[in-house]
């Protein structure tokens, strides 16, 4: 066991990790931050996405010891300081961009990374960017809508025939 120290959501936290301890396991089991989920073991699904030193990564495919000393942002660190939802989180609720909620933390973290690099993405860019995040519930329509809305674009009427 080796001591690993991370700055997680602005707080310095330490724990013990084996060589094989993944960042996702370290966050969930050692630090008790269970918002980061694990949905596959082949680095496909993206439920485990967190930001390490500002970059979105799949925490199930990063060794905890390999990022010792890094700054990590997880879904638990996304809300505003007063506890209210951040713009991207609020957009997911407003546009029903989640159902079972399991892929949601990774989706939100991945979408947040996109908007940082590309503040006004097109629909095609959003869809392409989310290729590393699998959702089985929503059919993606409302996720894409939420990300577009969070970027300040008008999404009224998208795909709703009755309106």
């Amino acid at each position: 066991m080796t001591k690993v120290t991370l700055t997680v959501n602005g707080r310095s936290l330490s724990g013990e990790a084996e060589g094989r301890t993944l960042l996702s396991s370290f966050l969930r089991e050692e630090l008790g931050l269970t918002g980061t989920h694990v949905g596959c073991d082949t680095s496909q699904c993206g439920a485990c996405v967190v930001h390490v030193d500002g970059l979105a990564v799949k925490s199930c495919t990063v060794l905890a010891q390999d990022v010792d000393g890094a700054s990590v942002t997880t879904i638990e660190g996304m809300a505003n300081a007063d506890g209210s939802l951040a713009t991207i989180q609020q957009a997911f609720q407003d546009h029903h961009g989640l159902q079972c909620g399991f892929c949601t933390p990774g989706m939100v973290m991945s979408a947040a990374a996109l908007l940082k690099d590309n503040p006004k993405p097109t629909e095609a860019e959003v869809r392409h960017h989310l290729e590393g995040n699998i959702c089985r519930c929503t059919g993606y329509h409302n996720i894409v809508k939420a990300v577009m809305a969070a970027s300040g674009q008008d999404v009224s009427g998208v795909g709703i025939a009755a309106e």
Binding site: S43, G46, K58, S110, E131
Partner: peptide, 9 residues
């Protein structure tokens, strides 16, 4: 290659 997260690592 892969997806944005894969490309970051």
């Amino acid at each position: 290659i892969g997806d944005p997260m894969v490309r970051n690592r």
